[in-house]
Design a protein around this nucleic acid. Structure first.
Lengths: 244, 244
DNA sequence: GTCTATATCGGGATAGAC
DNA sequence: GTCTATCCCGATATAGAC
């Protein structure tokens, strides 16, 4: 077996086991057995289990974020200087992720589910490299959303982006998780339908009227916080109408 | 130390450690040390680590779902037979959860974060008792939503409910997770503001225009699937306008 | 009910032969 | 590069004294 082969087999086996039972219960013994390689091969090729985990994420995330940025580039080129529509930005970010989740060659829904879970797990170790891998792509998408929604406070956009990530995570977890809520009558085999469902939900949330924030102290400077609520209400009117 | 005391100390310590580092890394040694009790006490009081995990969820979930149903009862009594507004239903389900997340006496945000994560983890063990604990409450809320949104296909409502759970989960994970996306400038200390932000996002998503579902084979019978798309489009118009 | 001590297992990592 | 054998640790669970 060639070196590259062994590496790949380990990565694939590890990913599958992480998805099914988490980082801890997937022991090196299980991983190497599933991969059909020797136990010691993991330490030889990756150095440690942690490094293996890191690499499992790195290879998928760098591909995913590449695709996302490529799609964003394409849309921005087409738009010739005009700001993108929110729906286009969401399509580039979430649509590409859903497409990856539907593609067996790139880890299928398994990896995306793993990613969604890991995202809310506050382990310093996973947090650090997720931030690294995400930084570049997220920065671009943030800016695109700020441009597309100039009247919406930036903090509000960030929170809604965060909420959208949560919805996507559960969407990809699919009927498996939904069946906790309702044992019957839901079908997630149709990825096209899931995409349409999720996109209209996300767009609805993103362009919802702005919340009535309670007056509060500003974070850094001491500007009059009363104004803030007013400004949000004003923006709410226009936002609910203007977008698509 | 009284028996009840020991039980409680173990439950609290276990919950806190599960939140911080998951079920597997929280060993009985860590749990009992943090609780200030003897290692053997866990097996004496709960029988096994799995049973302890189960009990950690049961005590919080039964309280949470009690509160949710109480609030739903109250709203339905007030409404005297008329269907509730979607916003009221969301308030009873998600608002109560956020309130619990903000209340240190009931586990604070810790437990809710743990719950959100566990929800997407496909372990048979956790899945089974989550379904048990949720069944009653979710059934009532489903029915309330069906009544409140008679023109929206039931399957669509279930998916949107699922998406909303995802958004809530991430909302409660809070700035810790958001900072993966953006290292600065976000503040989650204000739970009132978080509540308002999340509610307007959820409502926007719930009442979004219905998706354009691709034609597909019906699930059980072979009724003409073309009609389905048309029906959804029709409904979309009314739904986007009618709700609040 | 609570303790100490221990049985038993499975984990990650590594040394050293091939 | 890959293997076997093994070290060392920490996990759950339990037996038996108090």
């Amino acid at each position: 077996m060639s070196e590259a082969d062994t590496r790949l087999r380990i990565l694939d086996a590890a990913e599958a086991l992480f998805v099914d039972s988490g980082f801890e219960s997937a022991s090196l013994r299980l991983i190497t057995a599933k991969a059909g390689v020797n136990l010691a091969a993991v330490n030889y090729h990756f150095g440690s289990k942690d490094a293996l985990i890191h690499e499992v994420f790195r290879r998928r995330l760098s591909w995913l974020n590449d695709q996302r940025l490529r799609e964003l580039d394409r849309l921005e080129t087409e738009a010739t200087g005009k700001p993108l529509k929110p729906s286009q930005i969401l399509q580039a970010f979430f649509g590409v992720a859903l497409k990856m989740a539907a593609d067996q060659d790139n880890g299928g829904s398994g990896f995306m589910r793993l990613l969604g879970r890991t995202y809310t797990q506050p382990s310093e170790f996973t947090r650090r490299f997720l931030a690294e891998e995400y930084a570049a792509a997220v920065g671009r998408f943030k800016e695109a959303l700020f441009l597309a929604l100039p009247e919406v406070p930036r903090e509000e956009i960030l929170w809604r982006f965060h909420f959208m990530l949560g919805a996507m995570s559960y969407a990809i977890s699919g009927a498996d998780a939904l069946n906790i809520v309702d044992k019957d009558s839901v079908d997630d085999s149709n990825t096209e339908a899931l995409y349409e469902r999720l996109m209209s939900f996300l767009l609805g949330g993103l362009r919802a009227p702005l919340p009535n924030l309670p007056a509060q102290a500003e974070k850094v400077t001491g500007r009059k916080s009363v104004r803030k609520t007013d400004r949000n209400n004003l923006a709410a009117e226009s936002v609910a109408v203007q977008l698509t």
